[in-house]
Structure formats: structure tokens, C-alpha cells
Nucleic acid binder design. Structure first.
Lengths: 179, 179
DNA sequence: ACCTGAACACCGTTCAAGT
DNA sequence: ACCTGAACACCGTTCAAGT
């Protein structure tokens, strides 16, 4: 059975779950697939592209009716894979096109009357909070620091603050239309 | 003249400025200092510690009377070194104690009447936006993507949105006390 | 105290050659 | 088309040994 981008991505996810990002090397993935490292390069341009594929797989199937819900869905998806947020952070830095899940943020913001510009900038702010907050949680865990039991509250607090602020930009803060 | 943590940190900053984060290796720093790589380990525990020292040096001398000012000061400091935001992102992940500059955020938030909990969480949200936004700008530049001329506006937009949202949490959004 | 020299166990990536 | 084998140019870190 020939190798494929999908199998390679799944191998990456396996290594991530079991050993974390520090152990996610092309050579390790190849070993996991019982293949020479160079074989991977017929299917994938380089490690960066593979990380984008991996982050895309992690964030597939994220959805939410409203933004707080979507944000929690993204947090859950990232949290389901060890160091998932770090991989996503690198993927958004490497890829010009938005990752699934994150791509749903701007339309939801526009749906509440934000201009294209405000929705774009607001989406970035939200995205930064989501990715960095989960990365901080996961890094704390990786370093053996005890996990903050209030992490979900802290996460939601940030999401709500940003959404309120984006509403406030347009003077609609009194009626909580955004959530 | 014996080696020192300061000289090592400065060598790291030189390499960062000239060649960027991808070229910032212990071996490269050692070569720059005309010293064996192993010599560095007498002064520094490992690369992570050196990155924390480097980020600390980058963010030294950040100040601002209010939060939008402080945020711009941090942005300027990070922007002054190639891939500075990436280094800071790794440093905050690695170090339990806050970096200079970022450490000034919570007291400023408390100064406007936020509870300790709200100030702490709000500071994280602000910190995530600041670091991730500058990292995105710098990564876009590194990838040869044309720099967005509106980047400063986008940055300020996010800062203001978060501050308004934090104010809104306490019902003080009508009077713009935070800035 | 401070550094060298040599080694260990890795990396990502390329590319001719095989099938 | 798809993969192997071998190589290139690197990594971070350790540690005995020198001074």
C-alpha cells in the first residue's frame, strides 16, 4: 500500500499525541511508517507543509452557532492533540490561507454588522487570543507546571472581552448582540 | 576578556538582527564569539535560558503612561529585532516569570479598578494579542509577503477592542477611562 | 574558574539510483 | 510513479581534559 499525504499526516498526529512536538521530526515520522525519510519528500514539499496539513486535520470539524461556541470548539480541537496549539501557531505563520475553524470567525463577525475591515482585524485579535491561550495552557502542562483549573474560565473571559470590545467599537455594547 | 552572559546575549541579538531566528543556533553564537560551542554552557544552562535572556534584553526599557502607549512601546521593541516576537513567544512559554514590558500590564489594568483576577486574565489577553500580532507581521515580512501598511492600525484596533471589552466587563464603557 | 576537543545522538533536505 | 541509500550540512548537549 503506497504512502499518501493522509497517512503521513496521521503518523504526524500519532507522534504528536504520544510524544509531543519536540519529537515530531521527519525522520521519526518515516520510522513510524517504516519508510526512509526521503520517501516523505515525494508526497510533501517540506516539514512546514506537513505542519500545515497536520494543523488543518486538527481543526477540521470545528463549528459553532456563535463566536463563543466556535471559540470553545477550536479550543477543544487544539486541546485534543498534544502541543496542538503550537502546531497551529506555526501553520498560520507559514500558510497564507486560513485554517479551517479559524476561517469561520470573520463571517460570524460580519454577521453582526461589523465592516469588512473591522471583521478582519477583530478576527485576528480573536485568533491570536485563542491560539496563544491554548498554547500557554499546553506549554504549562508540558513543563510539568500544574494546570490551572480556571483555564476554561480564563479562556472564555478573553473571548468575551474581545467580543464586547468589538461591539463597543460600534456602540452596541449595551445590548449584548454578540453572544 | 572572559565570556559572560551579557556578551552571549549580545551575540544572539546580533545574529537575530542580521540573519533571523532560523540561524540563531548555539554553534553560530559560539562561532560569532570565536569560542567552542561547549564554552557557552558554562554561562548558560541551555538554549531556552538564552532565549529568555535575549527576550528580556529586547523588552528592557519598554514603558508607557497608559496601556495603548505601553503596547506600542512593546511593539516597537519587538519590531526592532528580526523575529523578536517569535523569541518573546518562546520565552514566555519557557519562563514562569513575566518578561519586562509585559510585566507592566497587570498593574496598569488594576489601576483602572479591575479586580486582581480580571487584571490577570485581561493582561494575558492583551499579551497574546501583542505578541501574536507582531509575530504575524514579522513572519509575513520574513516570507517575502508585502508588509501591510495598515499593520499599526490593525495592532491598535486590537488593543483598543480588548481594553474596551475589559472596561465593558465592569460597565464603564461609556466613559473611556482606560485610554 | 573557564574553556577546548571530541564525541553522542540527533536534525531537514537532496538526489542519483533502483524498481 | 514511488521509494531506497547515501550523502551534505547542520543541530543541542555532555564531559573528560586542559590551563
Amino acid at each position: 500500500m503506497a504512502l499518501s499525504r493522509n497517512e503521513i499526516t496521521n503518523a504526524a498526529l500519532r507522534i504528536l499525541r504520544k510524544y509531543g512536538f519536540a519529537d515530531l521530526s521527519m525522520r521519526r515520522i518515516a520510522a513510524d511508517l517504516e519508510v526512509q525519510p526521503s520517501a516523505l519528500y515525494w508526497h510533501v514539499h517540506n516539514k512546514q507543509e506537513l505542519l500545515v496539513l497536520t494543523a488543518t486535520a486538527i481543526l477540521e470539524h470545528c463549528r459553532g452557532e456563535d463566536l463563543p461556541q466556535l471559540a470553545r470548539s477550536i479550543r477543544a480541537a487544539l486541546s485534543s492533540v498534544r502541543d496542538g496549539a503550537d502546531v497551529a501557531l506555526i501553520a498560520v505563520a507559514a500558510s497564507p490561507e486560513p485554517l479551517p475553524g479559524l476561517a469561520q470567525i470573520p463571517p460570524l463577525l460580519r454577521g453582526f454588522g461589523l465592516s469588512d475591515q473591522d471583521a478582519e482585524w477583530g478576527a485576528k485579535t480573536l485568533e491570536h487570543h485563542i491560539l496563544a491561550a491554548v498554547a500557554a495552557e499546553q506549554n504549562a502542562e508540558a513543563l510539568g507546571r500544574d494546570v490551572d483549573p480556571l483555564a476554561p474560565e480564563a479562556f472564555d473571559f478573553g473571548v468575551r472581552a474581545i467580543l464586547k470590545g468589538l461591539g463597543a467599537e460600534r456602540g452596541v455594547v449595551d445590548e449584548p448582540v454578540l453572544f
